[in-house]
Design a protein around this nucleic acid. Structure first.
Lengths: 165, 165
DNA sequence: CAGTATCTATTTACTGAGTATATACATACT
DNA sequence: AGTATGTATATACTCAGTAAATAGATACTG
């Protein structure tokens, strides 16, 4: 999504070094999104070049620390402020379906069935996750799970609709 | 999304040259997704390099034609067959919301309101589009619009839910 | 306790997607 | 005649992300 902005958010919280950002990111997304370690460092290089972060030096263990600049804060706020617009075709399945229709893909029914299966599995998985989160787990993530479930519901409803045509 | 695969689909339909792919793409998405002309040619270069397309030569007007190879067809089928998995965080607003929560962003309520406004506007726009499509317009696109509306409904329901907490 | 696996930590060359911009000829308009 | 628009392509560049290598520290295991 935007690794760049999430790193900015983590550095905004407190000064950090590369590896701490990697683990910080993974904590943030509860390991649901594996992050290539290299990406942290390449992104940091670009952030520093663009003066959204700066480095005041290294810590005791010789790890390069980064702090957010004023410009970096502005960038972070403006990213958060900007609503996301979900253009029709930003949804990958819609786009695939459009391509498949265009070329009269013979297996469109199968395609829809497979997609539905994946989504039903996702519903089961997320429902399980939601239960787990009732005991422990952070509140925000629980809401996201709830949102994702509503999303999946809508998707499945739609798949049934188009499968019936 | 995947310009690469949609170009493959268009070439699969019939041999085409670069400019024809640009216009073909824009017809396909009914101009809802502006495509940088340069991207067509850079993508074609990569497709040719990877032997997913080949060029049998130029047409009468000296435009380089491309045809799909067997390997290209396989790539297209496998893309279409593969269900898309929508990881929780692939949704940009969820991700933003997670970042905002993490840093105690003061204006989360405002953020949610802005997002809702954008979505309500989108609903109006798509509802209008749907009506237009009842007369003219292709059937597939109409279904996508219907799907997007279900999606937006779910999103708005969720936004109301989290705004109330 | 020697050997090995895992964790911490970073670097770098590279690929792939997408953009900006330049060019050039043809046609339409005014 | 001059200007805008449409057709057509090329290319250098940026940005995001990956693969793979390196290396020291710590934990585990027979």
């Amino acid at each position: 999504m935007s690794v760049k902005h999430s790193l900015l958010a983590l550095i905004y919280e407190k000064p950090r070094h590369g590896y701490e950002l990697k683990t910080g990111f993974e904590d943030l997304v509860e390991s649901m999104w594996p992050l290539n370690a290299g990406q942290v460092y390449t992104t940091l290089d670009r952030l520093e070049r663009d003066e959204l972060v700066a480095s005041p030096g290294h810590d005791k263990k010789d790890r390069k620390l980064y702090t957010i600049t004023d410009q970096g804060k502005e960038e972070l706020w403006s990213w958060l402020k900007q609503p996301v617009s979900r253009s029709l075709l930003k949804d990958e399945f819609y786009f695939k379906y459009l391509c498949a229709s265009h070329i009269d893909y013979e297996d469109k029914a199968h395609m829809i069935q497979m997609q539905k299966q994946t989504m039903v599995k996702d519903v089961l998985h997320l429902t399980h996750l939601k239960k787990e989160m009732n005991q422990s787990g952070n509140q925000t993530m629980k809401m996201l799970v709830e949102g994702a479930l509503l999303h999946l519901e809508a998707d499945i409803k739609w798949l049934d609709m188009i499968a019936g045509k």
